[in-house]
Computed example of a mutant assay.
Amino acid sequence: MDLVLIGIGTGNPDHLTLQAVKALNAVDLILIPEKGEEKADLADLRRAICQDLVTRPGVVVAGFEMPVRDPENPSYLARVNDWHDAIAQAWAATIDANPGASRVALMVWGDPALYDSTLRIAGRLALQRKVNVSVVPGIMSPQVLAAAHRIPLNGLGAPFLVTTGRRLREEGWPSGADRLVVMLDGACAFQHLPPEGVTIWWGAYVGMPNEITEAGPLAEAGPRILARRQAARAEHGWLMDIYILERKSPAA
């Protein structure tokens, strides 16, 4: 069986590359994760992409119920590993329900290479059956955020570091970089940082029609971001956001 993981950008169908469109039209089965009513928009968007861009007759689009992580397990890594096992089983069950499919695709938000576990889950599936995995890269959310704010990701001749909200919250500002790209931060770790000398560029639903952005000194922009996040989640039922932090170098 061939399994192709297709990066689809941050939700805008225009983000799909020609390679991604060709890959969608070359498979027999496209798997769509379904995450309940609150996140039905995410499945609907994937289905809309298929409806608009898949033109080859016979391609089957099949949804599967996305497992949820066990909140009772105190170990973060154990929770994630158990969750990935359950997702691989859900993939396998959906594939087995479509026995004529020898080429299967999954559409991945952004790119499978950056803070996404689809490749790891594919590895679990490969332990159960012979699977040839290929990847079609997609536009990453840090690129779209930087474009929305019209800024480069890095300072002049300087590095930037990509991290998660959990690590920022638990470990503080990492050493070695004065500019951070922070992903997967449902708890707004930026509000626990000393705000002096820190600038934030934030965006939610970046690249989509309902994109919202904020930027400025953290002390001023932080409260605005918290309020806009709350309002957006109440309106849409789900929220995907990302932000860039920059602090003045101690040597500056």
Rank of each mutant, 00 (worst) to 15 (best):
S249D: 13
A231D: 11
R120H: 14
V54F: 02
A219P: 15
R129Y: 09
H149K: 07
T213C: 10
I6K: 00
A86I: 03
M183I: 09
A93S: 14
E65D: 15
I225P: 13
H15G: 13
T118V: 10
P217T: 13
P209S: 08
A215K: 12
R229E: 11
H84G: 12
S117Q: 08
Q191R: 13
H236I: 02
R179T: 15
T164D: 03
L29M: 02
E196V: 10
N73P: 00
R179M: 04
A126F: 05
D52H: 14
P13C: 03
R247A: 01
S117H: 09
E171G: 07
P67E: 04
E220V: 15
I30L: 03
E170R: 02
L168E: 14
L45E: 13
I151V: 11
G7Y: 07
R120N: 12
K35A: 12
I121A: 07
C50E: 02
Q89F: 03
V61L: 01
L119G: 14
G165D: 11
L145C: 09
A26H: 06
S117R: 05
E196P: 07
C50T: 14
N210V: 11
R169V: 09
V198L: 01
L119I: 12
E196S: 12
V68P: 03
A231Y: 08
M240A: 10
T164F: 00
Y205K: 02
Y243F: 08
F190P: 10
G100L: 00
I87P: 09
L106Y: 10
V135I: 08
S75F: 04
S75V: 07
L226Q: 14
F160N: 05
F190Y: 14
A221H: 10
D41N: 05
G9C: 13
A86R: 08
L153D: 07
S75D: 15
T17A: 07
M1C: 09
A146Q: 07
A251S: 14
G186Q: 06
L29G: 12
